[in-house]
Design a protein around this nucleic acid. Sequence first.
DNA 1: GTTGACCCTGAACCGGGGTTCAGGTCAAGG
DNA 2: CCTTGACCTGAACCCCGGTTCAGGGTCAAC
Lengths: 130, 130
Amino acid sequence: MADVMLSIGEVASRADVNVSAIRFYERRGLLPEPERVGGQRRYTAVTVQRLGIINVAKQAGFSLDEVGVLLASTDEGAPAHEQLQALAARKLPEVDALIERAQTMRGWLALASECGCNTLDTCDLFTLNQ
Amino acid sequence: MADVMLSIGEVASRADVNVSAIRFYERRGLLPEPERVGGQRRYTAVTVQRLGIINVAKQAGFSLDEVGVLLASTDEGAPAHEQLQALAARKLPEVDALIERAQTMRGWLALASECGCNTLDTCDLFTLNQ
DNA sequence: GTTGACCCTGAACCGGGGTTCAGGTCAAGG
DNA sequence: CCTTGACCTGAACCCCGGTTCAGGGTCAAC
C-alpha cells in the first residue's frame, strides 16, 4: 500500500501509451482526474493497469465510449451494472463475429503465405463464411 | 456466364453496403472501374463477392490499403504476389494477436453477463494477458 | 541561480473511412 | 408529356481517436 506515485511520463512508458493519449482518455472520462502535486498529475499502478484494459478492449473492437462503460463497472459503488450487462449482451455476438472473421482471414493469410498460387477468387473461405 | 448486370443500388443491397461506400472504394482502387450503360455503373456478381471480402478483411483489422493488396492478388496476371506474401507475413501475427485479445474480452464479457458481481479489478483476465 | 528534462493548458490539426449535399442526367410508367 | 426514382459528379462535411503546437510552469541537479 506504499502506493508509489508515478508521473504521467512514467505511466505512459509502463503502459506503452503516449502521454497525449493519457490526457485524452482523462478528458473522455476513461481515467479519473488524478491527484496533483505542483500542478502535475500523479498516478498509481492502478492507472497502468487501466490503460492495459483500455488497450485490450480497443483491440477487440470496443469504442472508447464502450470502454468507458466497462471501466465504470470497476469503480466502487458502481451503479453501472445494468449498463455493463447491456453492453455485454450487445457486444458478445459482435466479439464472436469478430473472432470468426479474424480466423477466416488468418486461414487465408496462412494459405497465401505458404502458397502464392492461391487467389481469393478460387478460394472459398470467403464465400463459405459469407 | 450469362453475367447479369447489376446497378450500383442492387450491388449495394446484396452486399449490405452503402452506395456511397461502393463509389468510395472505387476511388480508392479497391474496385475496378465498372462498365457503364448510359453513364451508369453496371456490375456482375463478382463485385458483390469482392465487397464481401472487403468487409471481412476490414473486420479483421485490415486497412483499406491492405485490403487493396489482398484484392490485387486476385486480379489476373497479378504481379502482386510479393506484396501479398509480405502482407501475409506482416499481418499474420497481428491477426493472431487480435484473436487473442478478442477471446480475452469474450471471456470477460461472458463472466460479466452471467455474474454482475465481478469487477475488472478483481478479475485477472486482464493482468494475466497483459 | 540557471540549465534541462519534464509537465501544464487550450486549440488546432491530422488520417482513416466514409456520408451528405447541391446540382444535374436518364428512363419508365401513369 | 411529365413526374418519380435511381443514378451521376465534385466538393464539403462528419466522427473517431488521437497528435501537435504555442506559450508557459516546475523541479532537480549542478
